[in-house]
Every structure is written in structure tokens, then in C-alpha cells.
């Protein structure tokens, strides 16, 4: 068994999905945690300090490479698996009742993931690109909180962000417990616990993320 053989096998590819999935789950905790500093309602002072640390500290910059590597691996592998899975059934059923045996969100990870990818393109162009431009041009410190207020002042942007967060919820709701099954953990005592933690996690993360554009748009915080 060569490394290539392992990582191109069906289970090896599932392993990549599950492993990077858990990695991204951990990243979201940091992301939601730092962004929640806006709820301190101190005109974004704490939030901007945190953002400055994240974009200037070399350890964080280094970890960022890992984050993008994990994200890209998850996206490429996910898309390629989805296309391969489609090929495994060249002729579709004329009459199929999938709702009798599985949940819609578990069957829609490809579509939910694609929605998230589109969301990410928008999200990175809103916040990531400007931060980097400011970092390297370096005229004055970048006020990320100001940028948030500007972006979320537009109603349709807030709506698109909410669509993104809802997609994220269903993606996490299935993905969290699915990742553990993929890594080989299915246990009478632990699996129900994993499912509960996954549900609570997905709810907390998504409520926090949904509140950010809404709170800023409605000027609950400024």
C-alpha cells in the first residue's frame, strides 16, 4: 500500500473529507469566537485588536496556510467525490422515494457545500481581500469593524449572508457526526453524545454568525 494508493482509495478519500471537516469545524470555533467580540458593543475596539493580532502574528499567518490547504482539499475532494458518485448510477430511477430512508440534508451535502463555496467567494471578497491589501500596502491600520458596518448596511448582502449561514447549519448538522463515522467511530455510548454535541455546536455557531450581519444592519451594535 503506497501513500498514493491509500489517499486515492474510496475510504482514503472519505478520510480526507472527515479529517479536513473536523479541522474546519475547529476553525469555525475560533472564527465565531473572535467575531463575537463585536457583541461587546465597544465600537469594535476589542474586535479590531483581535483582528489585528490574527492578521499580523506570524504563528497565525503560518496556520492560515494550513487552513487554506485544508479548505481547498475539502472542496476539491468533495466536488470530485460528488461527480464520481453520480457516475455510479448512470440510469436514474423513474420512481424513487429517498425521503423514506434518509434525511434530505444528508443527501444534499454536495449542494450545500457548493452553496457554501459560492458564499465563501463573496465572503472572502468582502473581508479577506481588503485586509490583505491593507496589510501589504500598509498605509494605515485596517478598520475591519468599519468594513463590517459598511458591508452589512446593504440589505441584500445581509440576506445572502443569512442564506449562507442556513446552508452552513445543515452542512455542519450532518457533517459533524458524519466525520466521526468516517473516522471509524460508531459506539453505542459515544455516538449519541457526538450527535448531541454536533447539534449544539451547529446551532451555537450558526446563531452567532447569523446575529452578526443582522445586529449590525439593525444597528443594535455600532
Amino acid at each position: 500500500m503506497t501513500w498514493k494508493h491509500f489517499f486515492t482509495s474510496s475510504i482514503g478519500r472519505k478520510f480526507i473529507m472527515g479529517f479536513t471537516g473536523i479541522f474546519l469545524i475547529l476553525f469555525l470555533i475560533i472564527h465565531a469566537g473572535i467575531n463575537s467580540c463585536i457583541f461587546l458593543n465597544d465600537h469594535g475596539v476589542t474586535f479590531n485588536k483581535m483582528a489585528h493580532f490574527m492578521s499580523h502574528n506570524w504563528i497565525m499567518r503560518f496556520l492560515e496556510i494550513g487552513l487554506f490547504a485544508g479548505l481547498i482539499a475539502h472542496i476539491i475532494q468533495g466536488l470530485s467525490l460528488t461527480f464520481q458518485n453520480k457516475k455510479a448510477r448512470p440510469v436514474e430511477y423513474y420512481f424513487n422515494q429517498p425521503s423514506k430512508n434518509s434525511k434530505w440534508y444528508s443527501r444534499s451535502m454536495g449542494i450545500l457545500g457548493t452553496l457554501l463555496l459560492l458564499f465563501l467567494v463573496m465572503h472572502l471578497s468582502h473581508f479577506y481581500v481588503d485586509t490583505k491589501v491593507a496589510l501589504y500596502s500598509g498605509d494605515k491600520p485596517h478598520d475591519l469593524f468599519d468594513e463590517m458596518k459598511e458591508v452589512f448596511s446593504i440589505k441584500w448582502v445581509v440576506i445572502l449572508y443569512l442564506v449562507g449561514v442556513v446552508s452552513l447549519f445543515w452542512h455542519l448538522y450532518h457533517g459533524f457526526q458524519s466525520a466521526f463515522q468516517t473516522l471509524g467511530i460508531n459506539h453505542k455510548r459515544y455516538t449519541p453524545l457526538i450527535k448531541t454535541i454536533g447539534t449544539v455546536y451547529a446551532l451555537i455557531i450558526c446563531i452567532l454568525f447569523a446575529l452578526m450581519p443582522v445586529a449590525i444592519h439593525l444597528q443594535w451594535i455600532n
Partner: peptide, 28 residues
Amino acid sequence: FGNCTNTYACEAECPKGISVSNIARLNA
């Protein structure tokens, strides 16, 4: 064959009620 995405439809339709815990064991 395609790749498992843990929808667990197989377990629900299996005439012998084979548990998806076997897939986890296969993965492990």
C-alpha cells in the same frame, strides 16, 4: 461503486437490518 456519504439509507432499506456501525468498523 460510489462512495459512502453516511446518509444511512442503506441501513433503513436493508432486508436484514445490517447496522451502519459495520461501515464505521470497515473505515476503522
